[in-house]
Design a protein around this nucleic acid. Structure first.
Lengths: 148, 148
DNA sequence: ACGAAAGCCGAGCAAATCAGTAGGAAATAA
DNA sequence: TTATTTCCTACTGATTTGCTCGGCTTTCGT
């Protein structure tokens, strides 16, 4: 039940882009450096995000990446699904095309995995990049108060 | 975010034992056959469950495995934790000993993974083997109604 | 026009994990 | 004593993970 670095790095990178939304394209090496991610590896991940339409790229000098939609319209679930595939603890409850299983109608464990899937999806789909920006702002304020 | 076969097979095997709770020891090859699991592989999994105190074994002919506690005191979460380790989408929100991360206080993504962890744990910890037995009974009754 | 800064692309690779197999030793009921 | 069963250790092929490497193309600034 682990998330791979694909999902983790992807969410970090997208959050970074959200924090810089409106400031023009952000080069990948900047994102990689700020988040301690191998640039070459992140390149592969962001290629997937780009093909899925979550970010767009600007080539050439002074180029970089930009969110393709505003932060409030992108959820963590969107990012995870693109990078890690459909949310499903086991394939027989896959969101897209559940693996066929002849026992599905009588399978008790299957119902459990479906509950897990729904509960994870509910959490991830309810959090937008904008929510994260706001939480970040709150954290900073608290941190400020702490130093007074 | 996939469960491995360890967790899946483990829950199936434990449910099988729950269905036979009170009928003496059930040999492993029976459980393996009924659930389409490689016996040798299941052997390794049940060894872990035994060492964790969830099942007890009776050696020798007519031996087998028995639940070590009654079905209502064993949750799916117990089984999963034993076989798959602590519930945590990423190590920095590990239930037992969270991996140290210097940015933890300011990490926005970390809060998300903690929410996912809690939501998965809540589902798994709320389902006991007895709940599964009852659901199974309901399904059988529905199936009976269907054939009238 | 040129060079530096960027994205784009495909190949390769070491380590870890998964999902088993294989083979036998020890215990026990009949 | 024999069949049945658990117990234990080691090995293994396939897949995934988390990268690295090298080169090509596009574009901005001068």
């Amino acid at each position: 039940m682990k998330l791979s670095t694909k999902g983790r790095y992807g969410v970090k990178a997208m959050f970074d882009l959200a924090q810089n939304y409106g400031s023009g394209p952000i080069p990948l090496n900047t994102i990689a450096r700020r988040n301690n991610i191998s640039e070459h590896y992140l390149e592969q991940l962001i290629a997937v995000l780009r093909k899925a339409g979550l970010v767009k790229s600007v080539r050439g000098a002074q180029g970089g990446y930009i969110l393709n939609k505003s932060p409030e319209t992108i959820t963590v679930g969107d990012i995870i699904r693109v990078l890690e595939g459909p949310i499903a603890p086991v394939d027989c409850v896959n969101e897209d095309e559940p693996e066929h299983c002849e026992n599905a109608d009588f399978c008790i464990t299957r119902n459990i995995w479906a509950k897990v899937r729904d509960s994870v999806a509910q959490v991830l789909d309810s959090i937008t990049l904008k929510d994260m920006l706001e939480e970040s702002k709150n954290l900073q304020e608290q941190s400020y108060m702490y130093y007074i």
